[in-house]
Design a protein around this nucleic acid. Structure first.
Lengths: 261, 261
DNA sequence: CGTGGCCTTGAAGAATCTCAAATAATGTGG
DNA sequence: CCACATTATTTGAGATTCTTCAAGGCCACG
């Protein structure tokens, strides 16, 4: 456990924040990885102290994003990767027929924008599902700093690889599971991520609509709703709109472990 | 276009091949990126000459893999990434119920094993679909060499990001397309990759079974077969088992562009 | 207090899967 | 080189799952 006070401690201003340079935000907050309460989840995870201090040298921006606001859009030029400080985001694409395809949800400590390296422009859009706060990390600088540190390179590689693995399992889900298995896998995933952030793993509030869940899981919103109801009737969950309480974790796990090891 | 002869040119033996060290292969072939006919597709793509020469310094292994043989299995320790020299591979997972989930197909010049960085062990298995040849690239050494070269780091990042984008589009496919759209997208993708390798984009031989295509696309083999038949009846394709001839590329493109931009 | 967004539920329809059988292609062992 | 076993593919018919369309309720917000 970390002391939450650390995060708010005034930090030595080695560099001006990029906010200050662009003059946009009212309060140019200086952010440092070494004092962040998310450092065990986020970019610095697994790094030695001296490497984390290298990260502190970057001109991080720190910014609030209002619910519904878009952090970047598909096609935007790629300059930063983003770390979620608080709140929840969705990644999405707009299909040719105008419908939205959700490709991921992002919680505190998770990185967004790694899919932009391939083309030099963002391959998806990121939208805040609730009021949120992010760190924007200038990629060029990050690459420079990485050059000096093997372990930082490793971490970047691992972050990207993790993204690949994450999408891998989503592919398995979309390719081989039925509606109940999909929703069970989704809920268990959320549950684990809540737990890793110090929240209850058995009771939480979903930040996304049924339609967004459906888009992500490859099913219609009505099917999502029906499946929630079915789980409730089976005594696996208590569902009240977006508030979820997992009553029978084992049964929920069995539902989806039938398919995935 | 490159002259194919370059590839077979005897190369200065700066380093012994790793084959020689392990004493397994009969002919310890020395492989170098700078003289490889795949250099515009593979790892060296976009690198300056001096960076490609750095790659030459790595103790590449070069190995033949028989049809049906497995290059690595999920859970195996991660020591190398692999580049396909010739032949076709599939990546797959084994689900809890014993069924196979195919997560990708790999052709000449493509890298395999990038999903292993996250956990330090391979997240999927790679199996040759026909007699094939690969380069095995020791990841530790690659990371070391990358440390000295920003552009090599960029290339690695781009390779990984490309993998993320690839899986992204597969997710869109699995999440929002019907059978015809899926198969059309699959065929157009193969077609483009064949073209990039100097083969005909309108006529080619599939190396995978209907079941493998189905697993990859999230549909049953019977549905794959029926969809092939439907395309044939619509005059879009000529199908003779695994031999495919695209008759109406535009119509095929329209079939799947209805959904994805 | 009305409006719009979100969620739930029902019923009918469509797409895909399952089961089954026939055929073709391939490989094996004698 | 042939007979036989095995594997891959195609096609049909019925079952199942999910989607579509439709209606109504709940809730937050102006």
């Amino acid at each position: 456990m970390h002391t939450a006070t650390l995060e708010n401690r005034p930090s030595p201003l080695k560099f001006v924040s990029s906010r200050e340079l662009h003059g946009a935000a009212p309060v140019p907050l200086q952010t440092q990885c070494s004092t962040c309460h998310l450092k065990d989840l986020c970019l610095p995870c697994g790094l030695a102290t001296n490497d984390v201090e290298r990260l502190d040298g970057l001109q991080f921006g720190r910014r609030k994003v209002k619910a519904g606001a878009t952090l970047y859009r598909e096609g935007d030029g790629f300059h930063h990767i983003y770390a979620v400080r608080s709140g929840t985001f969705k990644s999405s694409l707009t299909l040719a027929d105008g419908r939205e395809q959700v490709s991921g949800f992002h919680m505190a400590g998770e990185l967004m924008g790694l899919d932009a390296l391939a083309q030099g422009r963002h391959a998806s859009s990121a939208t805040a599902l609730e009021d949120a706060e992010i760190c924007s990390i200038p990629y060029g600088q990050l690459a420079e700093v990485s050059a000096a540190s093997t372990s930082l390179q490793m971490v970047m590689g691992r972050m990207m690889s993790r993204e690949i693995v994450r999408e891998h399992s989503l592919m398995v889900l979309l390719g081989s599971m039925n509606a109940e298995e999909r929703l069970a896998a989704f809920l268990l995933n959320i549950s684990q991520r809540m737990k890793a952030r110090g929240y209850s793993s058995s009771e939480f509030h979903l930040r996304m609509t049924r339609a967004e869940i459906g888009s992500y899981l490859g099913m219609k919103l009505e099917t999502v709703s029906r499946t929630f109801s079915a789980f409730q009737q089976q005594g696996l969950l208590e569902v009240d709109k977006r508030h979820i309480r997992i009553l029978d974790l084992q049964a929920l796990t069995r539902t989806f472990e039938q398919r995935v090891q």
